[in-house]
Amino acid sequence: MLDDIWVDDSVLALRPDFAVLVMTAHGLRNGPSDDRSRAWLTAASACEVQTEKIDAWKDAYRAFGAKPQRTRPSVDALTRRMPLPEINRAVDAYNSISVRHALPIGGEDLDRYVGPARLVRASGDEASEEALGQPEPGEVIWRDDAGVTCRRWNWRQVARTRLTEETTNAIFMLERLEPMSLEELKQAGEELADLLAELSPEVRITSRLLLNGN
């Protein structure tokens, strides 16, 4: 799965500094939010908002014609929802890491994917859920063989692949732009892996870093 994921050159032309750390977690034991995941959310909610990193994502949205004040990058929307909402343990884990590092993170049910994930610029005729709306030509989207999985880079994910309490195999996309360093991106991935291992000691985690030129 990881070897087949790719980022289209047209996306990298918009932001040559883009990199994504893709992680898969097999054997996950998810469930409803508990005291442990609530503590992660509480600690993250106390962190100072890192506006420079969020502003970089707003600029990236403008580069393909989106208006970030109307459809906000995921990490921008998340930092405006303090205290962070409880969803389920796995989502609480990656939301807490997202806010700590001002890093957009998507988490999805790997078993719901049809073919590999790829980040592309939309043609405008991709299959998309009605609630999500149809992507505009040139819009940056994550997709698989069945259609859109996330619109406007990291604005909103489809219901089809969302992480639920029953999810056992998951995929996470940690998306970086400058001024975040690659070292911090890798650190965030390690922190997420540690939280997932707390939830599921037997979880098997693999990762791959995709960046311009690689």
Score class of each variant (00 low, 15 high):
Asp144Arg: 00
Gly213Glu: 01
Tyr61Ala: 08
Glu86Pro: 02
Asn154Ala: 14
Glu126Pro: 01
Leu182Trp: 03
Ile171Val: 15
Arg152Ser: 15
Arg36Asn: 00
Ile5Tyr: 11
Asn169Cys: 11
Leu174Gly: 08
Val148Trp: 06
Gly124Cys: 04
Glu129His: 08
Lys186Gln: 12
Arg100Phe: 01
Leu196Thr: 00
Val140Ile: 15
Ser74Met: 09
Tyr113Trp: 10
Leu192Asp: 01
Val99Arg: 06
Gly133Thr: 07
Ile5Gln: 02
Gly115Asp: 02
Glu52Ala: 15
Asp3Ser: 09
Gln187Asp: 11
Ala46His: 09
Met180Glu: 11
Glu130Leu: 14
Gly213Ser: 04
Arg36Ile: 04
Val140Tyr: 10
Val91Arg: 05
Pro85Lys: 08
Ser74Gln: 09
Glu184Tyr: 09
Tyr113Gly: 01
Ile205Asn: 04
Glu139His: 07
Ala25Ser: 06
Ala117Gly: 08
Ser45Ala: 13
Leu41Pro: 04
Arg81Thr: 14
Leu177Glu: 04
Lys58Ala: 12
Ala193His: 06
Glu129Ser: 13
Leu132Glu: 02
Asp144Gly: 03
Tyr94Lys: 02
Leu28Met: 14
Val7Met: 15
Leu12Cys: 11
Thr206Lys: 10
Glu191Phe: 04
Ile5Asp: 01
Thr167Trp: 13
Gly213Lys: 04
Leu196Glu: 00
Arg89Asp: 06
Asn95Met: 11
Gly115Phe: 05
Gln134Met: 09
Pro68Glu: 11
Asn212Thr: 14
Pro137Ile: 12
Glu130Phe: 14
Leu195Arg: 13
Val203Gly: 04
Ala193Trp: 06
Trp142Thr: 00
Arg38Leu: 13
Ala44Gly: 08
Gln69Lys: 08
Ala93His: 01
Thr42Glu: 15
Tyr61Ser: 09
Gly189Phe: 11
Asp4Ala: 15
Glu165Pro: 06
Arg176Phe: 05
Pro16Asp: 03
Pro83Ser: 06
Asp55Leu: 04
